[in-house]
């Protein structure tokens, strides 16, 4: 996998990114302090690479993901995407670039519009951004559904008619519909059962290889993150404390927090790494 990481300019460069949320208090509400959700984070993702981002809840990993697609404005710092500065762009330019940056959310129930058919959910953005025309849309949609392993009968149904795993497949199809170069997956499997989780993880890994996608995979389940990532970044209270290739990170964690994290994970694989913690 290391041959993917090349010396040329990375697809995404994040430098010294910050996001502070004000805390209001007092009798006359005023700002009494700040929550430093993201506090001076820098990292890069190369073309075709998957970066895993782990950390405990509230450490700022979701905020970071949302900043990358422009759902949150950073306080400070810059994001360079394919050599262009995202932070200083106008809304109009941003809208164009954003088709290349897509996100898969944790909760597929609230991220799909309950009043629209799957057809509308998937087709509208493609028509708007001229990815497909009225003539080709049906074929494009079928190709998309085929990619995520859904039958084409789903098109005339509503989001609530599907199980969690199927809805997440639709969420992935929606993210892929605009042919993105960077896919940000924010805890895409944490709401799913283990057997379904494996299906989605396998799907994501296949799609990465097939479409040569660049990914940021946010999660708190270290096993799942390890499964899809080339490199993993560990985040702790708004800062990235360690970045290493997936294998190396868990075999030789250097930061104390990473060590705690590794020891906290229950291990069950027989004959791997740490047999003494089994049983």
């Amino acid at each position: 996998m290391s041959n993917k990481i090349q010396a040329k300019e990375p697809l995404i460069v994040v430098e010294n990114m910050k996001k502070y949320y004000p805390i209001k208090g007092g009798i006359i509400p005023h700002v009494t302090g700040y929550i430093k959700a993201v506090d001076g984070v820098s990292f890069t993702i190369h073309e075709g690479e998957t970066l895993g981002l782990v950390g405990e809840s509230g450490c700022g990993k979701s905020t970071l993901g949302r900043q990358l697609v422009g759902l949150e404005k950073p306080e400070e710092g810059c994001i360079r995407y394919a050599g262009r500065e995202l932070t200083g762009m106008s809304e109009k330019e941003l809208r164009k670039v954003r088709t290349e940056l897509q996100m898969v959310f944790q909760d597929s129930h609230s991220s799909l519009n309950p009043r629209k058919h799957i057809y509308e959910i998937l087709a509208q953005p493609m028509l708007y951004h001229h990815i497909a025309t009225k003539a080709t849309i049906q074929r494009e949609l079928e190709r998309l559904l085929d990619m995520v392993g859904l039958p084409k009968s789903v098109l005339e149904r509503y989001p609530h008619e599907f199980s969690g795993g199927q809805r997440q497949r639709i969420g992935i199809a929606k993210a892929l519909s605009l042919k993105p170069r960077l896919l940000i997956c924010d805890e895409p499997v944490s709401a799913l059962d283990v057997s379904i989780q494996a299906q989605i993880l396998n799907l994501l890994r296949e799609l990465q290889q097939e479409l040569h996608l660049t990914c940021l995979f946010i999660g708190h389940d270290l096993g799942a993150v390890n499964y899809v990532s080339d490199r993993i970044a560990v985040m702790y209270s708004g800062k990235i404390v360690e970045v290493a290739p997936a294998k190396q990170l868990f075999q030789n964690p250097t930061h104390p927090y990473t060590k705690t994290l590794c020891n906290a994970v229950p291990v069950l694989q027989i004959g791997s790494g740490k047999p003494e913690t089994l049983l």
Binding site: V194, S195, Q197, D221, L222, G223, A224, N226, S272
Partner: peptide, 8 residues
């Protein structure tokens, strides 16, 4: 189906 952190 369970991914582990020491998986190859």
């Amino acid at each position: 189906t369970v991914p582990g952190i020491y998986d190859s």
